[in-house]
Amino acid sequence: MKKYLAYLRCGFLDGCAYRQYFITGMLANFIQAVVLFFVWKSIFHYQEVISGYTWEIMKQYVFVSFLCNSIFSMGFEMDAAERIIKGDIILDLLKPVSYRTMLFFRMLGTAGMEFAVTFVLVGGIYLCINGVQYLDFFRTVLFLIALLMGMGIKFCLQYLFSLLCFYTDNAYGVSKARETLTNFFSGALVPLAMFPGILREAVNFLPFRGIVYTPCCIFIGFFSIRECIFNIFLQFIWILVLGGLGTLLGKKAFSVISMYGG
């Protein structure tokens, strides 16, 4: 475990070395959230309730979903692909550590700074707009657990997508595809409850909802405590399934990869 904490540290330092990059990236995300905020505001101006959502709820949803979505938002497909194409992955594999666990802690370190800044920023804005009236201690704890679980799901998905880069050189495409899928099906843009008929049912069977929608609903109070527990359990199952898939496909990918350079 100490080994991986050392990776966390290096990832964090690495993230700090790139802080301008982070800050511009985050600013871009943040502008998106603000735009979304005003779009919803004008929509609710015309219709008071949409699929059970009122403006009061939406005001929370926009910021909480932004927070949930911003963790690991950079994605490491590009990074992983670059290491494969340049052959630097060789150096990762030469270490007596599990590749995936190493990646997780390295990313966690790098994302740690990003997350801390976002948390303070978004939290501050949330409080300015909504005050403390909706906060509930027990729900907040459940929310944080769900948030962590969502992070796990996101990591597993990113790992799976990064394995695709073993087969294709088009890392940008892979990264964009994953981003679009997660943004749409996780509820980061539109609450899943607003999806039309069959699609709304379908997304319940996808892992993406665990990333944003589940923690958001827990925080806002759409789920009863029972539902909260059930949904967190569901997130956990998805982590196991996606993690298992990653192990399986990882084994395959590592046996076909040809190490470049030399």
């Binding site: 050392a6 330092l13 690495d14 630097d88 150096l91 350079g261």
Partner: peptide
Amino acid sequence: FGQKTQLWWDIPVAETFRL
């Protein structure tokens, strides 16, 4: 591998050794 480096590119060399 002489043409590759295991050193972390953006953080001090000492950190690589610590790791």
